[in-house]
Design a protein around this nucleic acid. Structure first.
Length: 200
DNA sequence: TGGCTGATGCGA
DNA sequence: CGCATCAGCCAA
């Protein structure tokens, strides 16, 4: 195992971190069962000056509080009353940056992921969206604030570099309310990867 | 292509 | 308090 260190998460540029997360392995051991996948799609959210971010304008509530923590923590929240979305907190204390993980390519524990998704065979829809992915990995809001340096949820280096030319930049999903900031090209996908989410 | 779903965090 | 809002998914 080659777990990403705290120094990976505490760097300042969340956009760079979001790109570098492509090709890394996201691993969970929930109830002693290991599941994992390679990250193929991310979105960057910046605490300062990004209206699409939950913590923009220094907004500080019970939900967003963890975003102000030092990088290397999990920010999990419920969306549309149903979906548990998994984000990684980055940057130093008080900056409130985060990366939303939107899709993975399943690796370990595929049987368990199929069971959690109530699917009988492996297909791309098992983890091709932030809600589906969290469900397959067993991530819920009870993992809110969890450290990514411990042994429940963490990230690993797998030694595969994703080159800049293989990364597709686009606008983020579902942030039209953010005005000009909705145009920022802060969604990153691995080109021609079949495990990415269907959203345009 | 709609409808479902419920916590969140506004404004009153 | 109430109620509009929402970083999605699934069955058709």
């Amino acid at each position: 195992m080659n777990k990403l260190p705290i120094s990976f998460y505490t760097r300042e540029n969340v956009v760079i971190i979001a790109q570098e997360l492509l090709g890394k392995k996201l691993v969970t051991t929930i109830n002693g069962i290991k599941t994992s996948g390679i990250i193929v799609e991310t979105e960057a959210y910046r605490g300062r000056g990004d209206r699409a971010c939950h913590s923009n304008m220094g907004r500080r509530t019970k939900r967003t509080e963890i975003m102000y923590h030092e990088g290397g923590r999990a920010y999990v929240y419920l969306c549309y009353g149903v979906h548990h979305l998994f984000n990684i907190i980055t940057n130093k204390k008080e900056n409130a940056d985060a990366v939303l993980i939107r899709a993975i390519e399943p690796k370990d524990g595929i049987e368990e992921m199929l069971a959690r998704r109530k699917m009988d065979k492996l297909k791309y829809s098992i983890t091709n969206g932030p809600g589906s992915m969290s469900k397959a990995l067993g991530i819920t809001t009870k993992h809110y604030g969890h450290s990514l340096l411990e042994n429940k949820i963490w990230l690993e280096e797998v030694g595969v570099d994703i080159y800049k030319k293989d990364i597709i930049e686009s606008t983020r999903v579902g942030v039209s309310y953010a005005g000009e900031d909705a145009k920022l090209p802060w969604r990153f996908r691995i080109n021609e990867n079949k495990w990415v989410s269907p959203a345009k």
